[in-house]
Design a binder for these strands. Structure first.
Length: 459
RNA sequence: GUGGAUGUAGUUCAAUGGUUAGAGCACCAGAUUGUGGAUCUGGAAGUUGUGGGUUCAAGUCCCAUCAUCCACCCCA
C-alpha cells in the first residue's frame, strides 16, 4: 500500500494555491458582472439520473457520459442472457441509474421544468460548476472542467441577446482582455441553405462543415463540400458570398448583400431582421470591444434556432473563449413547450490559459500585502498575540509563524510565500514598546511604536 | 473509438549493450544563535513504469502490458 505512487486520473488536475487564486479571480470577476446584471445563481447536483442525460447529446455524447454504478445488490436484476454477452452498453442499462453532469444546459432545462411553478420568468440564472466527460484528454481538453453558464429563460425578446452581448463586453473589460464577439443567426444560415437549394437533411452537415472555416480555411471547407458531391455552381455561389463577407467589416453592407439574394426567402429575411435589430440597438450601448456580423459562424450545437455568438481573443489565437445562442425549445424534451431561452457559456479554462500567456493577472493576486510575525519563542507570545488579533480586526492579512524556528527559516518561509512584510519582536522591541517592520521587497526596516502598527499598514 | 510519440530521483533531463545509473532546479543541514532572495560546503533522495525474452552482460535491443502526452473524430 505504501509503495503506490500517488496519481490522479488522466484529464483531471490539482490546482495549487497560485493557480487556484488565479482561477478564483476569473470566477469572482464573472460572478461580479453576472450579479450586476441581476442574474441569480443556481447549483445542480454533480450526478443526474441517466434518463435525464441520455439522448440529449447525440450518440457520441452518450458514450462520453460517466456512469455511476448502482449501490447494493445490483446484479440481481441483470437478465441471465446478458451474462453471456459482453455488451457494456446493455449492461449499464441495468447496472447504472445515474451519470455525472455532462454540461450545465441539460440540468438547467431539467431544473426549469421541475421548478416551473416557483420560477418567475424571465428567469435569469448563472451557474459555475464542474462537468465531466469521458473523453480522451489532450491539450486544453480535460475530463473534468468548469463551465460558467448564463441564460435568460422565458422571453423571445432580442433584448436578451443584447444583454448577453453587453455582459460579455463588461466581463472582458474587467479581465482586461480585448476580444471580438462574432454574431450570426441560424435563420440566416437556413436562408443561405435555401438560396443554395440544399435539402433539409443537408443543413446540419452544411453547418458542421462551415463551422470548420477558422480551422481549415475557405479552400478546406470548399474541398469538404466537393466531397459531399455538391455541384460546382453551388460551391462557387457560396465562395463568392464568403469572399464578399470576409472582405467587409461593415454589417449593413453584408445585410444589404444578403437582402439582395434572399428573394422569397422568408426564413433568411427573418434572420436578417433579427440581426438588424440587435446591431442597431448595440449602437446605443457603450461597448469597449468589437462586435461583428460573421455570416459564416455556425457553431456545432444544433439546438440553436436563432442568434448565435462566439467570442475570440484578439491577442491570442486559441479558438473561442466564450459562445452561445438562442434555443427555442430547450425544455420540450422534459415536457414543457414554448419556453425560449438564450444563453452563453464562458470557457474559464481557456480564459485562464490566455491570461497566463499574456500576463493579465493583476499583480496583487500574486503579491498580496501579507504580513508575517516572526516567532521568537513562548516568552514573546503575550506581546505578539494581541498584536496579531488587533491587526486582523483592522482587516490586515497577518499570521504568526507557529514554530520557534531559526530566523533564517522563518524569513525563507515569508519569502517563498510572497509575504510583503515581516514583523520582528525581540527583547529590544519589547523593552521600548515597539516592533520592527521589514519590507520584504525593498529590504527597508523600521522600528515603530506598538500603537502605530495599524496606521502604518493602513496608509 | 482511430493513429503517433514517450516512460530514469520530488521535478526537468543525461548516461556507445560493459565499474557503484549521473547533473541542474527543489528539499534538508552547516558556513551565519536578531534578518530572507546570493554564494560555498555537505546530505538525503532510484526495484530505470510493470512483466517476460535475447545476451557472458540490458536503463539501452525485442515482445507484451500499463501509464502519460500529442493528433484525429467530437467537443469547451
Amino acid at each position: 500500500m505504501s509503495n503506490i505512487k500517488p496519481t490522479i486520473p488522466s484529464g483531471t488536475r490539482d490546482f495549487s494555491p497560485d493557480q487556484a487564486k488565479k482561477r478564483n479571480f476569473i470566477f469572482d470577476t464573472l460572478k461580479k458582472i453576472f450579479e450586476l446584471h441581476n442574474f441569480l445563481p443556481i447549483e445542480t447536483p454533480a450526478m443526474e439520473n441517466l434518463n435525464t442525460l441520455l439522448g440529449k447529446y447525440g450518440d457520441e455524447g452518450d458514450k462520453l457520459i460517466y456512469r455511476i454504478l448502482n449501490s447494493g445488490d445490483f446484479l440481481k436484476d441483470l437478465p441471465d442472457e446478458l451474462w453471456q454477452t459482453k455488451d457494456a452498453k446493455k449492461w449499464t442499462e441495468y447496472l447504472c441509474d445515474k451519470g455525472m453532469r455532462y454540461d450545465l444546459t441539460v440540468p438547467l432545462a431539467r431544473y426549469v421544468v421541475m421548478h416551473r411553478n416557483e420560477i418567475n420568468f424571465p428567469f435569469k440564472r448563472y451557474q459555475i460548476q464542474p462537468v465531466w466527460r469521458a473523453d480522451r484528454p489532450q491539450k486544453g481538453r480535460y475530463r473534468e472542467f468548469y463551465q460558467c453558464d448564463v441564460d435568460i429563460i422565458g422571453t423571445d425578446s432580442l433584448l436578451a441577446e443584447i444583454e448577453l452581448i453587453s455582459l460579455v463586453d463588461e466581463v472582458f473589460e474587467n479581465l482586461q482582455l480585448s476580444i471580438t464577439t462574432k454574431i450570426n443567426n441560424r435563420k440566416i444560415l437556413q436562408g443561405i441553405a435555401f438560396w443554395l437549394h440544399l435539402k433539409d437533411n443537408e443543413f446540419i452537415n452544411f453547418t458542421t462543415i462551415l463551422d470548420k472555416l477558422d480551422k481549415i480555411g475557405l479552400d478546406g471547407v470548399l474541398d469538404l463540400f466537393k466531397n459531399e458531391n455538391w455541384d460546382i455552381e453551388k460551391i462557387s455561389k457560396l465562395k463568392e458570398l464568403i469572399d464578399f463577407c470576409s472582405n467587409n467589416d461593415n454589417w449593413t453592407e453584408k445585410i444589404n448583400y444578403l437582402d439582395s439574394i434572399f428573394k422569397n426567402n422568408e426564413i433568411g429575411i427573418a434572420g436578417l431582421n433579427e440581426v438588424k435589430f440587435i446591431f442597431n440597438n448595440l449602437n446605443s450601448i457603450q461597448l469597449q470591444n468589437k462586435q461583428i456580423l460573421d455570416i459564416t459562424l455556425a457553431r456545432g450545437l444544433n439546438y440553436y434556432t436563432g442568434t448565435i455568438f462566439e467570442v475570440v481573443c484578439d491577442e491570442v489565437p486559441i479558438g473561442s473563449i466564450c459562445g452561445g445562442g438562442r434555443y427555442d425549445n430547450l425544455t420540450a424534451l422534459f415536457g414543457l413547450d414554448n419556453v425560449s431561452g438564450v444563453g452563453i457559456s464562458f470557457g474559464a479554462e481557456r480564459i485562464y490559459d490566455v491570461m497566463e500567456k499574456i500576463n493579465k493577472f493583476p499583480e496583487n493576486i500574486i503579491n498580496e500585502n501579507k504580513v508575517l510575525i516572526i516567532n521568537f519563542g513562548e516568552n514573546y507570545l503575550s506581546y505578539c498575540l494581541p498584536i496579531l488579533s488587533s491587526m486582523r480586526q483592522a482587516n490586515i492579512k497577518v499570521d504568526l509563524y507557529p514554530d520557534d524556528a531559526k530566523i533564517k527559516k522563518q524569513f525563507n518561509y515569508a519569502n517563498a510565500l510572497n509575504y510583503k512584510y515581516v514583523i520582528i519582536v525581540g527583547e529590544d522591541e519589547i523593552a521600548n514598546d515597539e516592533v520592527s517592520i521589514k519590507n520584504m521587497i525593498s529590504g527597508e526596516q523600521v522600528k515603530i511604536s506598538k500603537n502605530n502598527i495599524i496606521s502604518y499598514f493602513k496608509i
